[in-house]
Amino acid sequence: MDWLQVVVLSLIQGLTEFLPVSSSAHLILVPALTDWNDQGLVFDVAVHLGSLLAVVFYFRHDLQRMATSWIKSLRGNTLREGSEDPDARLAWWVLLATIPVCVVGLVLHDVIEVGMRSPILIAVGLIGFGLLLGYADWHKRAGRSEYQLSLRDAMLIGLAQAMALFPGTSRSGITITAALLLGLSREGAARFSFLLSIPVIVLASGLEIVSLIQAPHDIDWLSLAVGVLLSGLSAYLCIHYFIAFIKRIGMQPFVVYRIVLGLWLLWLFW
């Protein structure tokens, strides 16, 4: 890869991993608009690692409290909605809400990878789920935070997250949509979505690393280091400014962007 490709792909990964705009759609556009070769699995793992480091660092204080409380919760019952330890309960909700996407991903992995990566399907996902995000944002203004989720709420958001395996949906987009429909505030919906991304990225990257071990590649360590750095920095800034942005303006700019991008993909590939 040349350095322009390293920079562009790293920034795309870092920004689109957490914005509700579908990273798969943007990665489809790159080869469509350039003559670049596929970047390869090694680089994909590196930029996902950058995104993971960014979200972990951003929520480091929350995660420390959640981990400490979760370990303590193993000795008692903290899953009740009225529990005195909301950090433990939130940790449990993140873990339990990750189960549906793991099950669906394992069962349908080959179908998704082989038969559902067409630009047309991605365009349909962008437009359809973009309109759903717009409806969720218009429909209700509630003030619940991520700490006020019930088990039912968490599992419904987890089931919605499994739908992100459909191309063009956007993992962050569908989880934020579900959270808004369940009555969370925009900030609460975004924060829970970002927390949910941590186990998903860990598990997905783990599967990719297993593939790498089974089929070793020559590694350009400098390109990987730059990819991790740029992906991590752009992802961190994305999380920080996205939360501040949606508190003031909402999701509508992202809805418009998804529809325009989806129509463009239809025009390119129909």
Rank of each mutant, 00 (worst) to 15 (best):
Y257F: 14
G188C: 02
L156E: 08
L263G: 13
I174S: 09
F194M: 10
I120L: 00
T177N: 02
G250L: 02
D218Q: 08
A178H: 04
I174W: 08
G206L: 05
K247I: 14
H139G: 03
K247A: 06
P199W: 06
S211D: 11
I201K: 02
L230G: 10
G206Y: 01
S231E: 13
S197Y: 12
A244D: 11
A162C: 07
L156H: 03
S205M: 15
Q161T: 12
S234V: 15
V256P: 09
I157D: 07
A215M: 09
V200C: 08
A154E: 00
E146N: 14
F245V: 01
L181M: 10
G250R: 00
G128A: 12
I219F: 10
S197W: 10
Q161I: 02
L126V: 07
A225L: 15
Q161M: 06
R258Y: 05
A179Q: 04
G227P: 03
G188H: 00
P253D: 05
A235H: 13
W264Y: 12
G143W: 10
S193F: 03
S170Y: 04
L121C: 01
W264Q: 01
C238E: 03
G262K: 04
A190Y: 08
I243N: 09
L196R: 04
A190G: 11
I219P: 07
L149H: 09
D218S: 14
S170V: 02
D218G: 10
I259V: 14
G206D: 11
G250W: 05
L233W: 08
G134V: 07
R258Q: 08
K247N: 10
A123Y: 07
R258D: 10
P167W: 01
F194G: 03
L159P: 04
A189P: 01
V256A: 15
E208I: 13
D137N: 13
A190C: 12
L233D: 11
G168H: 02
D220K: 06
I120K: 00
F242V: 09
F242N: 14
G183Y: 03
L263T: 12
L233Y: 14
P216C: 07
R191Q: 01
F194H: 09
T177P: 04
S172F: 04
I249Y: 08
V228D: 11
I249R: 14
F245T: 01
A189W: 02
S197L: 08
A142S: 12
E146A: 15
S234Q: 12
A204N: 05
E146K: 11
F254I: 01
Y236C: 11
G125A: 02
C238A: 15
L132N: 12
L181P: 07
I127A: 01
A225K: 12
I127G: 02
L182F: 11
L263D: 11
H217S: 13
T177D: 09
H240A: 13
A235N: 13
S211N: 13
L229Y: 08
D220C: 02
V124W: 00
L207V: 10
